[in-house]
């Protein structure tokens, strides 16, 4: 059953196969969590919203149209939740982006390499967190979820041209932020 497409699994769940739903959740929980983690800069909040994303997905499963756009649909739910959370944060102001919380073990190498790697990762996360919300979403979906412009446009309810512009601006901002600082003495 694990080799079935997302659409087939959603349809199977709609017919009452709970196991199909479990496979879907296990297949997508890490990508959705990673997207929310980068959008929000907080693994705790990402876990909370990841759970909400799947609960919403399950509730809406019977209205899903199997057109091969499950990934865009799922990330649209996650993106909308992230947007609401960020809006609420703007109101509250007292919830900072937790870009310090890096629990990812650095891959191999000696201690200095590990430290440099961790610093680079932190710099990247901070730079991403400084992007405007829509640029950040488009960039994460392209760079880390490897989605096509069309898939990103579907999940963000926009056009391919708009996605192209968002990505161009995001990459220019990151280039300024990351490469200029890297070249500083």
């Amino acid at each position: 059953m694990t080799d079935r497409s997302d659409d087939q699994l959603v349809m199977a769940y709609a017919r009452g196969e709970e196991r199909a739903l479990r496979i879907l959740v296990e297949r997508w929980e890490r990508p959705v969590f990673a997207f929310l983690d980068r959008m929000l800069g907080s693994p705790e909040e990402a876990e909370d919203l990841c759970q909400d994303t799947f609960i919403k997905m399950i509730r809406a499963a019977d209205r899903y149209r199997p057109e091969g756009k499950f990934q865009s649909w799922l990330f649209r739910i996650a993106g909308n939740l992230a947007r609401s959370r960020l809006r609420r944060r703007k109101i509250l102001r007292w919830l900072p982006l937790n870009t310090e919380h890096d629990t990812t073990p650095a891959p191999g190498g000696d201690a200095l390499d590990d430290l440099t790697g961790a610093e680079d990762r932190l710099r990247v996360r901070r730079a991403i967190s400084r992007l405007p919300e829509r640029q950040r979403a488009a960039l994460i979906l392209k760079q880390y979820q490897d989605m096509s412009y069309q898939q990103i446009a579907d999940s963000m309810d926009t056009t391919v041209n708009s996605v192209q512009m968002l990505l161009h601006r995001a990459m220019q901002a990151l280039r300024k932020d990351l490469l200029s600082k890297r070249n500083e003495p």
């Binding site: 709970e18 479990r22 929980e29 969590f33 693994p43 990762r121």
Partner: peptide, 26 residues
């Protein structure tokens, strides 16, 4: 553009602490 993309790619995904299934199963 390639350099920025390479920097971004060096930041791996973090994983959720616990599996979600038990929290979301109907």
């Amino acid at each position: 553009l390639a350099s920025v993309a390479a920097l971004l790619a060096a930041d791996p995904d973090r994983a959720p602490v616990r599996p979600l299934w038990n929290a979301v199963r109907p």
